[in-house]
């Protein structure tokens, strides 16, 4: 069944969706709404996925596009098309690893300072995507990706050294 197949794909890519939501929404309520919006958009386009692009490329494109549109929307709550109180993807009791968690928390804070397009770029970079895939997902040249990555790296380095 299409829905079962969809659920299994979402399960495989839940980390990606979770990280995108955390990067674009610092507010928990908005994060939950964004998560629902991403799932709706993925579901709406699921039958149109023809395998020409990689599944991950397709998911990144839709999830990041939805996040950017949500972030830029004039009224974030107008996107609420279904009312589900809890988040579909949530974190269970997280075992605290001080150094790791502090660095990640700081990283999220610095990502928050980037504009929405740079946020997309750094997420793709941190998730270890190849420059070619990043260029394909974003729709810019590989040289452009490299230039921008080095600028964002410099920014993040400065942010970490200032803290």
């Amino acid at each position: 069944m299409e829905k079962d197949k969809f659920i299994s794909v979402i399960k495989d890519y839940q980390n990606l969706i979770y990280k995108i939501c955390c990067s674009y929404c610092s507010n928990a309520e908005n994060r939950k709404d964004l998560q629902q919006e991403i799932l709706i958009q993925l579901w709406n386009s699921f039958s149109k996925f023809d395998g020409r692009a990689k599944l991950s490329t397709w998911i990144y494109r839709i999830a990041l596009n939805t996040a950017i549109t949500f972030y830029r929307s004039d009224s974030k709550h107008s996107n609420k098309r279904v009312s589900i109180d809890a988040a579909i993807i949530s974190l269970s009791d997280f075992e605290y690893v001080p150094e790791l968690d502090e660095n990640i928390a700081m990283l999220y804070q610095f990502i928050e300072k980037l504009n929405e397009m740079d946020k997309a770029l750094i997420l793709l970079y941190l998730d270890d995507n190849k420059q070619k895939d990043m260029a394909e997902i974003l729709g810019i040249s590989e040289t452009n990706v490299a230039t921008k990555i080095s600028r964002i790296k410099k920014f993040l380095k400065e942010q970490f050294s200032n803290n």
Binding site: I10, Y18, N44, A86, I88, I89, L91, S92, E95, V97
Partner: peptide, 21 residues
């Protein structure tokens, strides 16, 4: 860490009435 700790609520996703959206 996320892979080990993320909870996926399948029932909630089904409740979303995706067909309607």
């Amino acid at each position: 860490k996320l892979t080990m700790n993320l909870k996926f609520n399948e029932e909630l996703l089904r409740k979303m009435n995706l067909e309607k959206s």
